[in-house]
Design a protein around this nucleic acid. Structure first.
Length: 155
DNA sequence: GCCAACGTTGGC
DNA sequence: GCCAACGTTGGC
């Protein structure tokens, strides 16, 4: 199984929203690297749910991939803010997955603490920053869950 | 609101 | 294919 980190702005859709909804579709990714990462996801993979543009930013909890990549149909809807005329039904350019709520950490694990942790210094989150869907090593996933006091093991 | 670090676009 | 101009992300 693989591990991922998914960024969402809590103003737009926080982990509490995901908890309320149970699951959600992850549309609107318009970056090729992020899209390619999504296409690697398998049902059951676990994701760190990251709050970006937040105060403070950090990992808020855990989610699970509930459906593998399928065409992002928002790209075909002219009235959607995710509309892209270069994506067609015949040749979809963008993809989305479904994610399911797993757990919220009691306390957000801040980006600052992640940066201060030696074993997490090589995370894409720290090294590259801006990517909204990124791979995470199992060791990194485990360390973050441990630091956040989460119980989120597979399941 | 600023701006660094990327990504994308399009002229050539 | 190069690269300048522009747009976006996201921390601060």
């Amino acid at each position: 199984m693989n591990y991922w980190l998914l960024k969402s702005e809590p103003n737009t859709y926080s982990i509490s929203d995901l908890e309320r909804d149970g699951s959600t579709s992850w549309e609107g990714v318009r970056n090729y690297s992020a899209r390619n990462n999504m296409r690697q996801m398998k049902v059951g993979d676990l994701g760190l749910y990251y709050h970006s543009n937040a105060n403070p930013p950090g990992v808020a909890g855990i989610c699970k991939i509930a459906r593998e990549a399928y065409p992002d149909y928002y790209a075909w809807n002219k009235r959607s803010k995710y509309y892209d005329d270069k994506s067609s039904r015949e040749k979809p350019r963008w993809f989305m997955v479904d994610v399911q709520y797993v757990e919220s950490f009691d306390e957000l694990l801040s980006l600052e603490r992640i940066k201060d942790t030696k074993s997490l210094r090589d995370m894409v989150l720290v090294k590259q920053g801006r990517l909204s869907v990124q791979p995470v090593k199992q060791s990194e996933f485990d360390a973050i869950v441990r630091m956040a006091g989460g119980g989120g093991r597979r399941g």
